[in-house]
Design a protein around this nucleic acid. Structure first.
Length: 228
DNA sequence: CTCATTAACGCAATTACTTCA
DNA sequence: ATTGAAGTAATTGCGTTAATG
């Protein structure tokens, strides 16, 4: 911290042409990997029509690389803010960046297409937004967490309703059972019995079970043998 | 081949800052 | 002007995976 960070002052998005396809993660570890670089300077606050093409560029990740070929733990853990941050640092208190509407929109747009970023996409997006790659990474992490939380809430609501309907069904079935029991006590041969049993409580069987049941009706003594 | 080490990453939990009612 | 709640950027710690020696 406190050291000069060239990335923090980076005002252009530099795209490099690397050999071979994109290999996530592991390729980034080869810190001294030589790559042919092609610098493409973007405006700090690109106009929307330029932003719209970001994904086309990022989609071609196979031949597209930023000029930052590695991202070590120091880069990941530190947050040297760019000019987009609030600069009211007092006694080392943590500062909190507020993303502009444009930044948020682009991040959201990118998230809709892919909820995780490969390093190429991350750096490209960071360059475009004038943010640090780490900040983009953090944003995506938090965004995934928010999505997950929302989904959990939706799932929870669904399960709640399901549970309620099952409880309701269970209550009905218990009530029916109670009625059937009371009827059988009063005389099982009562015609009411068959009439009062709702269709839903009638047993339905698959064809194989039905055959077995019929066989048992015909040859009750075979039941034990059938089990073996 | 196996093992230890390392780097990079994702996630959960948490902190801390900002905004707004 | 103050305050508490909500939203969210940032941090921390841990687990996983793959490369490397």
């Amino acid at each position: 911290m406190g050291d000069y960070d060239p990335e923090a002052c980076n005002t252009s998005l530099q795209l490099g042409l690397g050999s071979g396809g994109y290999a996530p993660r592991q390729e980034m570890r080869t810190k001294d990997r030589p790559l042919v670089c092609l610098d493409l300077s973007f405006a700090l606050r690109p106009k929307p029509e330029k932003i719209a093409n970001l994904d086309d560029h990022m989609a071609n990740g196979s031949s597209l690389k930023t000029n930052i070929f590695y991202e070590d733990e120091e880069d990941r853990r530190s947050t040297d803010h760019t000019d987009s941050e609030i600069t009211n640092s007092k006694n080392g208190a943590r500062k909190k960046l507020r993303l502009t509407k444009e930044q948020s929109t682009l991040l959201e747009d990118s998230f809709k297409r892919h909820s995780t970023l490969n390093p190429t996409q991350k750096h490209a997006l960071a360059g475009l937004l004038n943010l640090k790659p780490r900040q983009v990474e953090v944003w995506f992490q938090n965004r995934r967490a928010r999505t997950k939380l929302k989904q959990t809430e939706v799932d929870c609501e669904f399960l709640k309703k399901w549970c309620e309907s099952l409880s309701d069904e269970n209550r009905k079935l218990k009530k029916e059972l109670q009625e059937l029991k009371s009827l059988s006590v009063n005389g099982a041969s009562s015609p009411l019995l068959t009439h009062q049993i709702p269709k839903t409580t009638m047993l339905t069987m698959c064809s194989s079970c039905e055959r077995k049941a019929k066989a048992n009706d015909q040859y009750p003594n075979n039941e034990a043998a059938a089990k073996n």
